[in-house]
Design a protein around this nucleic acid. Sequence first.
DNA 1: GTCTATACGTCGATAGAC
DNA 2: GTCTATCGACGTATAGAC
Lengths: 191, 191
Amino acid sequence: MAKDVEQTIIDAAIRLFSEKGYAATSIRDIANSIDMTSASLYYYIKNKKDLLNLIMNRYLTLLINNANETIAAVEDDDPSDKLKALINNHVQNHGFNKLAALVVDTEYRSLEGEHKAHVKKLRSEYEQIWLDVLEEGKAAQIFSYENAKITSFAMINLCTGVAHWYREDGALSIQNIAEEYTMLGLKMVLA
Amino acid sequence: MAKDVEQTIIDAAIRLFSEKGYAATSIRDIANSIDMTSASLYYYIKNKKDLLNLIMNRYLTLLINNANETIAAVEDDDPSDKLKALINNHVQNHGFNKLAALVVDTEYRSLEGEHKAHVKKLRSEYEQIWLDVLEEGKAAQIFSYENAKITSFAMINLCTGVAHWYREDGALSIQNIAEEYTMLGLKMVLA
DNA sequence: GTCTATACGTCGATAGAC
DNA sequence: GTCTATCGACGTATAGAC
């Protein structure tokens, strides 16, 4: 059963970290929200820092793996289709794992030392995927923009924003939103 | 001299809140960073909550006022020019007052009660400015998009992202970045 | 595995001397 | 205006019983 309890703890941490922020959430908050004492919680986790690190690593890695898979699945190697796939993947990810995505996007400053360095590396890795697609499209004269780095940051920021306002019980499904973002994002760079 | 000290405190708070976050910053941190004791700090401020509220209100109000002014200055009432003005204003604002902008954008969850409600109202007010321009452009068949609300959120998220990666000592001036974002943003909605 | 009890640091905020 | 000293609450984390 240890595996289930661990996931329950992680989910509770994600919920509270995304709501109140890492620093404002206490170990007691997390434990009490799943009817545990803080002492019991320490049977499953090493400390608070590692809990945040685990969450950020897991969901950032998932985002990267999904991005690589969805790009590899593009049949004709068309940069437009690749960019669509990246936008769609990012928006869907930020919809389905909204709370975890919020933690990943807002708690980078709460990391320290090697944990921070590693997450920084993962971020660069993810940005590079977008950069490659954008530059491939420009070389093929399908895309048009001034600065690749600015444009990749702009595209990622655009898609990340979804997690800040998307509501599961809202009128718009995450599929609808992903479609609209795909259109908006593609128009942004099409020649 | 009281006025100067107050601004010094606010600037120190902005720096630390943007670096470590509101919850992770102590009153002692703020005081010590300007060679004061925490007890002296309380001569100038009422409490920690009010300090955050003051910062968020001041810079959000500034953003709104600048947005209204820059729109009013558009001569021919062209929606494209208005949208360009909004994008330019938002990006320049997030460049010049980068640290304050980061606090405004990331510490909404740290507000409580009436403070939170008021900032929420200010946010809606700002979003409405963008919505009006987008809908005016669509009515004039200059813009083309599916959902106005999604599009306005997308445009604002896009421009807000600048504060997360812009460096004053970087190769790109905030003017360059604002110009590029104006282009990208406009292309996103042009018919 | 889960608990009670607790060590020990730091927090926001105040009292009162100077 | 600025300080030292301090209060009571709450933070992370551990010890040790069951």
